[in-house]
Design a protein around this nucleic acid. Structure first.
Lengths: 159, 159
DNA sequence: TTAATCGGAGACTGGGCTAGTCTCCGATAT
DNA sequence: ATATCGGAGACTAGCCCAGTCTCCGATTAA
């Protein structure tokens, strides 16, 4: 698994889009609204709206109300990491449960003899650093438009 | 998120336990049964049973029926990576959906203009390599028994 | 000032997955 | 022959994701 949620995907796409409109374009910095992004990427408008609201709440984009309103990046694209986006949308990320406090008083039943806690924490940290080192800016450099291949790609792993 | 499932946790614990019984112990290689592991780590017996059966099917452990039966590592602990365990239990792992074939004919609606596919694929590969480079053997070296700290650890980011 | 266009926010729903339980079967050692 | 093990499937409760719907407030333009 280890899969991103749809919301996370949508959020990353939206941020990448807003960033590409704001920079690297002939037209001046322009406000982008939800509808435009939703139509461009075939995302359900109202769901994307929720995602953008969340990102705005977390200070990654700033919102402008009213007609001709929309969103702008609140800070430079290089200062927004994938990890930050994921945490904003999906909450704190962690391989295992046992590092977070449980409000309901429940706790990890395996704690007493847990032998995988420490090694998995290292893995978790590595993944976090990886996600925190890649930014929206990094995602823009490469491929503006991916050509879709209709036949299945050979598949993930040993490729 | 990016969380491991309970089954994955249980599987890793069980493998680590089986490995530690088979090696690094005074007693000779000994068969370990489901009940022993379940009680040791407070895991629901029948759920752990399913996990072990899955691991056996994937050739990571070999099963022995009958009284005094149980499981043995099918290969060296250093030849079993976390990635292999995860894939055995949770199926193919991938950050995004769009790399796997959909049998039902559905496909990623964002494909046409997807700008995050390529960069996320790099992230995915990095994570996979990370999980594939760490083995059960690596998980055994460090800490046989972790002392539980009741107060929350300072924790990763700036939270 | 009024109307249209935007974001903000909450309730609500269906479906799928996770975690766990229960039951029955086959294999095997004593 | 029997008790102990793994193998396998059906089944359930609950949670969460994805998506929809509705109403509100803010702002701009006419």
């Amino acid at each position: 698994m280890l899969k991103f949620s749809k919301k996370a995907d949508y959020g990353l796409m939206a941020l990448q889009h807003i960033a590409s409109v704001q920079f690297g374009e002939v037209t001046h910095a322009r406000v982008v609204n939800t509808k435009e992004i939703a139509e461009e990427y075939n995302i359900p408008t109202e769901l994307l709206a929720k995602v953008l609201q969340t990102l705005a709440k977390h200070g990654m984009i700033e919102s402008h109300n009213g007609p001709k309103g929309g969103y702008l990046l609140a800070r430079h694209a290089g200062a927004i990491s994938i990890a930050q986006v994921l945490e904003a949308i999906e909450g704190p990320l962690g391989i295992t449960d046992c590092y977070h406090d449980k409000e309901d008083g429940s706790f990890c039943l395996q704690q007493e003899h847990c032998t995988i806690r420490t090694p998995l924490l290292k893995v978790q940290d590595s993944i976090y650093q990886l996600l925190n080192s890649m930014t929206i800016e990094d995602m823009m450099g490469g491929t503006p438009l991916i050509t879709v291949q209709s036949h299945p790609v050979a598949e993930g792993v040993e490729r």
